[in-house]
Design a protein around this nucleic acid. Sequence first.
DNA 1: AACTGTAACAACCGCAGATCG
DNA 2: GCGATCTGCGGTTGTTACAGT
Length: 327
Amino acid sequence: MRKPDPNMPKNNTSTTNKMKLRKGLWSPEEDEKLMKYMLTNGQGCWSDIAKNAGLQRCGKSCRLRWINYLRPDLKRGAFSPQEEELIIHLHSILGNRWSQIAARLPGRTDNEIKNFWNSTLKKRLKNNTSTSSSPNNSDSSEPRDVVGGIFPLHEHHAMTFCMDSISSSPTISMPPMVTGNQFDPFPLLNINRYDITGGAAGLLDVPTCLAQGGLGEALYGDYGVLEPGKIALEGDFSLPPLESRSIEESNTAINSIDRKSNNNNHHHHHNNNTCFNNTDQSFKVGEAFGLENHHWEGENLRMGEWDLEGLMDNISSFPNFLDFQVE
DNA sequence: AACTGTAACAACCGCAGATCG
DNA sequence: GCGATCTGCGGTTGTTACAGT
């Protein structure tokens, strides 16, 4: 879209030892450097990546560029109507917690969704509100009181809705996996125990909670980590649930939950290897889908073909998961 | 053709939590 | 225990393209 700033020197070689960090638009050369480095060495300590890739950028900038633009598993292009609907729906539940919304939209980034919301959906909803009295058309950044408000409490569905929906979806194009004689599209995410607390506290048999939208995060896991061993052995892999948001809840509470959730991901990094390389990553993701010796199998996952409508149905028709809390 | 408004998107900033030395 | 550092998130700003006048 935007052209790189021509005034920006391509190689900002400072006379001092202190390298001046570049800001602003990324040049194609920089993109190429970062892309090459990431594909060769994988994700790790971002400040090291910035240095080692020969970029005069701060690690933060590299991270952002990678996550929002260069990642091969990104789904580019316009949002589909189903995605739009899902975003609106999720926003009504989660508010402006873009990362959580993005985790439920495979191939989309929080930044992308945020921009789309602010530039398009917000206005559209506002216009709709002016012509309609639907309470769901608020552009409030505060999540609504789901239980008492937007979503009617349908009859309780079995938690297996996740797999029911996904496995029956004709639009799935994931490489099929077979466990025994059973089709299992998400073998490594086949968590039998999903530890939850709250209203329905206890251990439930949950095949997987992909329909909570965890797929994206599960595959990308912090945009890149999937830890099948941890999942299988410790069973503590928990996808961020859609958290119930009551208007009464303070932002502090929201943030603390968010942080906790986020930091679980963080833990996964540091508990194993802070700077894992792409070989690991490729192995993990590739192994998960029976695609070994490929980098960035996400390209093959065809994320955009998930049954978003089914997901939407599930989200709106299953109240229990809204009571989940992050451990 | 020139100007203006705005949509769309990329990137930066500030903050907070976790980890490390 | 504490400060430095890393990482991630959400808010905001800046830039470009394009449509309308």
